[in-house]
């Protein structure tokens, strides 16, 4: 597999996993919770490194998963018990956890194989050289591809099995509770899924830009369709397009790949906003003018 293809593939895996979960986040009006989780998992990752001394992916996923769910819990806790507005609660919680992560990295910089720039901005260009080599010495290929591939698989299985529960608890939580489907359980399962996806993504696109992949593709798809399943299919397609076009934009400008991918995600959203056949700004305006003329 060529280097280009490996990078694009890793980007597509990450963008798809993020985008699929992002569909639920934006429909639950929780887009910023996704942002919060993506930042707040940082101390979890660093602590997992420190305790186990390895960059073993399973440890990272567990560490980040715990902190991610804790973040959601804290946001709810401050909102409900402290009567704080949700956005204020999000702002306090994730910056605080993220800051702890930043301190941990700088303090233990010598002990952990982590680089601040890499964590913040990601370095997907390293995918082809960061190889997974077994104890026996066999080279299995790029490590990030395995991680992001596995996480994507987990997310697909999660959504396929819980599709109707996620659908109902997102659309009408009170009714879901009334028919005996636990909204709390599905809320935390979804947040756990967002957390592990973020870990898989932070090495490739970084903690800051991952939110572009969580929100922009589903927000674009939301403007293009009115059917949840189609929205998820479109999100996947947009995610792959973002990855491919972002990579070539980075090559053309000789710039950051993660930055280029997020830029393309924004560009696609802008196009959908202007030209969507149902919700597009220009289409609506054109329709209005036509109506006036008649």
């Amino acid at each position: 597999m060529s280097n280009d293809l490996q990078i694009i593939l890793a980007g597509s895996f990450v963008a798809t996993a993020c985008g699929l979960l992002g569909c639920y986040l934006i429909l639950r009006k929780m887009a910023m919770v996704g942002d919060a989780i993506s930042h707040a998992v940082l101390p979890g990752i660093v602590l997992a490194f420190l305790f186990t001394g390895s960059r073993d992916s399973v440890t990272m996923v567990i560490g980040a998963g715990i902190i991610g769910v804790l973040t959601t819990f804290l946001i709810e806790f401050f909102h409900k018990k402290g009567k704080l507005q949700t956005d204020a609660s999000i702002g306090v919680t994730f910056t605080w956890l993220f800051a702890i992560g930043v301190i941990l990295i700088s303090v233990f910089a010598g002990k952990v194989d982590l680089d601040q720039d890499c964590v913040l901005y990601g370095e997907i260009a390293y995918v082809p050289i960061d190889l997974w080599i077994t104890d026996a010495g066999t080279v299995m290929g790029p490590r990030v591809l395995y991680i992001s591939g596995t996480v994507l698989l987990i997310i697909l299985v999660f959504i396929a099995t819980g599709y109707k529960e996620l659908f109902l608890t997102t659309f009408d939580p009170a009714y879901a509770t009334a028919v005996g489907i636990s909204t709390v359980l599905w809320h935390y399962l979804l947040m756990g899924a967002v957390s592990i996806t973020t870990v898989a993504s932070f090495e490739s696109v970084g903690a800051i830009l991952v939110v572009a992949l969580l929100i922009a593709p589903p927000a674009t798809a939301y403007l293009l369709t009115e059917d949840l399943f189609k929205m998820m299919v479109l999100t996947t397609i947009i995610g792959v397009l973002v990855s491919v076009s972002g990579y070539y934009l980075a090559v053309a400008t000789d710039g950051s790949i993660a930055g280029a991918m997020a830029t393309m995600a924004g560009l696609f959203f802008g196009l959908a906003f202007l030209f969507s056949p149902t919700e597009g700004y220009l289409v609506k305006k054109f329709r209005k003018e036509k109506a006036v003329m008649h």
Binding site: L168, T170, F171, I181, Y222, D227, K230
Partner: peptide, 16 residues
């Protein structure tokens, strides 16, 4: 404004 059709919503009655 949730992306769902009428039949999707009615089918939710069967989920329990």
């Amino acid at each position: 404004d949730f992306p769902a059709s009428v039949i999707d919503v009615v089918l939710m009655g069967r989920y329990g």
